[in-house]
Design a protein around this nucleic acid. Structure first.
Length: 655
RNA sequence: GGCGAGGUAGCUCAGUCGGUCAGAGCAUGCGGCUCAUAUCCGCAGUGUCGGGGGUUCAAUUCCCUCCCUCGCUACCA
């Protein structure tokens, strides 16, 4: 059994969790679950970074102590995981006493080894630009912008002799292609290292300026500054140096966003080297989430609240979207429309509908029991090959953090199953009483669906468990061996009782596009996020779930009217559809194509008054324009037309 | 300014160590099925693979140059 240790960065407690934090957490959780399914022992670490000026300042303004302030924000980050369906194994805080002890231990060790020295930190500071300039940047000793002579500001501080390990680091990166990935960031780091001499890293601040930090063990007048504190969380969380966890799980697989590439790709490995520790295993760098192609920022008022998305669409759809949409290493764009697009196209139409149709057929043809397969055809073998390849590709990509491509691969199987249904036409087999073949076809589908459900556990744990339950299975991590799934066949037991219907991913209306960014600045409180959707994908199973409440304004959007059916006829190209003309009080009758042919004959409708949704967007149904919808009431047994208790003028409003 | 990444169908992107590589999904149009969640399946597209030049029998894929976009270059998490 191999081991897998994955980390998110520790999040700085100067702001609330946002989409970026959510994504990193979800990715780490998905990788953890994936490795557990593959049979590895995994450990997932996250936490908060709590020292530094910004926190000292912010807490001051809030009238709190830094610790109180940090406690509060850290709590928000601690709650992030559960909200997203993510389960970190440990949540570390840089204010934890154990962490502080570890930092001091490592500092002392590196200090004694001679790699920390006391020196002067300073530079040519231009007050106009509010920045330091290097000698090289100055033009004749003047600021290139202001043409003034910058002031030299100096401060004594401790430095880490990072430059000493530059050659070693270049060599290590060259020797280990997966040390930093994707390759673009590896190249970026290499060019950074090779372009110029690495400077030493300033790791302290005098207490006269900053007290909110970890005191240097070898000089009480200074606190540790930033990276020597923050980065060491990755080992202090494992109780370095003596902890069992450290011995078991180090080296780490880090996940970071591209903004903290340099500290993780340069500072951290050299720090480990200087402290006599093995380098981490891999650094996995992802891009930013943009909102409508713009960087997310509070000042623009376009910050996406993970909680709102989860509340509106559920953790499964949210996780699926993030992991499916962002190509590893690249930026991606978050919009609610895109999320809903994925939810409808991939989850509702392709996957959810697949489950629903297959479960329904299993009930119609086999009393809801998984049938036993018999002889397989070439077509079946072909499908299995495709499935095997899809699963192998999924696993290969997922293991290397390419979740988008992994899911793309898996969906090739989902689509193939829908296609297999079409070509093998179970309803025809049923009509022809070919039970043997029908059983094989259904088993092919059900067993593949089980495999898909298992593969999706890392991405959508909640939905995956439901899918398996619908197939009559119960999820047991210890019994799954994902690595073998592409090769083995027949793990789904015949005779299992499956659910009759599946409502995993109900379709959702496309939200109205958010107002332009300029408007959002004006009204930062009320951005698009208002989800006027229907049921979140919470509904466990069965046909009816409790409906979510809507606002009266939402109801008012419906234009419900009473009208008399003038004529009705079978749709020429559809079995279930009727083409109905309804008088709604307008000069022209309204043409509505209704899916009622299986329950009503045209004669049943003509002359009746019905209730119509009059402002439904027109749509062609099998080639014929439909301008509305006829309402019915139905239970498990019967379907009745919805109508008024007495006669009403055509066009009468329902309110 | 320096360094880096990228500019491929309406949209989001794959892809090519130079030769069936011009692709996928979404969106659009048309056709088919009826087990299913206005769902599924099939077919159809359009693309000067950013502009120009070069190397080659052959370049979207290599070289040069130009244009555009975005990052990093700030001990700042």
């Amino acid at each position: 059994m191999s081991r897998f240790f994955v980390t998110t960065p520790i999040f700085y407690v100067n702001a609330k969790p946002h989409l970026g934090h959510a994504f990193t957490t979800i990715l780490a959780d998905a990788m953890t679950r994936f490795h557990r399914l593959m049979g590895d022992e995994a450990f997932f670490l996250t936490g908060t970074d709590e020292h530094g000026d910004k926190i000292a300042k912010a807490s001051d303004e809030a009238g709190q102590s830094p610790k109180e302030y940090a406690d509060q924000i850290s709590g928000l980050f601690r709650a992030l995981g559960p909200m997203l369906g993510a389960k970190p194994d440990h949540f570390i805080r840089t204010t934890d006493p154990e962490h502080i002890k570890t930092v001091q231990k490592v500092l002392q060790k590196v200090y004694e080894a001679g790699d920390i020295y006391f020196g002067e930190y300073g530079g040519h500071y231009c007050f106009g630009c509010e920045r330091f300039y290097t000698e090289k940047e100055l033009v004749d000793g003047m600021c290139p912008d202001h043409k003034t002579r910058p002031e030299y500001i100096a401060e004594k501080n401790y430095f880490f002799r990072m430059s000493k390990y530059q050659a070693w680091l270049i060599e290590h990166i060259n020797q280990n292609p997966d040390f930093i990935r994707p390759a673009r960031y590896r190249n970026e780091v290499l060019s950074l290292l090779e372009s110029g001499a690495l400077e030493d890293l300033c790791i302290s601040r005098p207490k006269s300026r900053l007290t909110w930090g970890i005191e240097l063990p070898f000089d009480q007048d200074f606190v540790c500054y930033v990276w020597f504190d923050a980065l060491l969380n990755y080992v202090s969380a494992l109780n370095y140096p003596r902890g069992e966890k450290f011995k078991k799980f180090w080296p780490a697989n880090h996940i970071v966003a591209k903004d903290i590439l340099k500290p993780h790709a340069v500072f951290w490995p050299t720090m480990l080297k200087a402290a006599g520790l093995a380098p981490y295993q891999s650094l996995n760098v992802h891009g930013y989430w943009l909102v409508r192609d713009t960087k997310m920022s509070k000042s623009l008022g376009n910050v996406v609240e993970p909680k709102q998305m989860v509340d509106a669409y559920g953790t499964s759809a949210f996780r699926y979207f993030l992991l499916r949409e962002m190509a590893f290493g690249s930026d991606a764009s978050f919009t609610e429309e895109a999320l809903v697009g994925r939810l409808n196209a991939d989850l509702a139409n392709d996957l959810g509908n697949l489950f629903n149709r297959v479960l329904s057929m299993t009930h119609k043809y086999f009393e809801g029991k998984v049938p036993s397969p018999t002889a397989e055809t070439e077509e079946d073998a072909e499908l299995k090959r495709l499935g095997r390849d899809a699963m192998r590709n999924f696993q290969g990509h997922f293991a290397e953090f390419r979740t988008a491509r992994a899911l793309e691969s898996l969906w090739e199987l989902v689509r193939a199953l829908n296609k297999y249904i079409d070509t093998s036409a179970p309803w025809t087999l049923f009509k022809n009483k070919d039970k043997a073949r029908l059983g094989t076809v259904m088993y092919m589908l059900l067993e593949h669906m089980r495999k898909i459900a298992v593969h999706l556990w890392p991405v959508m744990p909640e939905a995956s468990v439901k899918m398996l339950e619908q197939l009559g299975c119960c999820f047991d991590l210890d019994k799954v061996n994902l690595a073998k799934e592409p090769e083995v066949w027949g793990l789904l037991d015949s005779g299992l009782a499956v659910l009759q219907t599946s409502n995993l991913f109900p379709r959702v209306e496309v939200p109205e596009p958010a107002p332009p960014a300029a408007l959002e600045v004006e009204t930062p409180k009320a951005p698009a996020a208002e989800p006027k959707k229907k049921a979140p994908p919470k509904a466990p199973e069965g046909p009816v779930g409790p409906a979510d409440s809507i606002e009266f304004a939402d109801f008012q959007k419906l234009d419900l009217r009473v009208g008399t059916v003038l004529s009705a006829a079978k749709h020429p190209d559809a079995d279930k559809l009727l083409v109905v003309q309804v008088a709604l009080g307008d000069p022209e009758p309204r043409q509505i194509v209704a899916g009622l042919a299986d329950r009503f004959s045209p004669e049943d409708l003509v002359g009746k008054q019905v209730v119509v949704v009059a402002n439904l967007a027109p749509r062609k149904l099998r080639g014929i324009q439909s301008q509305g919808m006829i309402l019915v009431a139905k239970d498990a047994e019967v379907t009745r037309l919805l109508t008024a208790a007495g006669t009403v003028d055509d066009g009468g409003k329902v309110a």
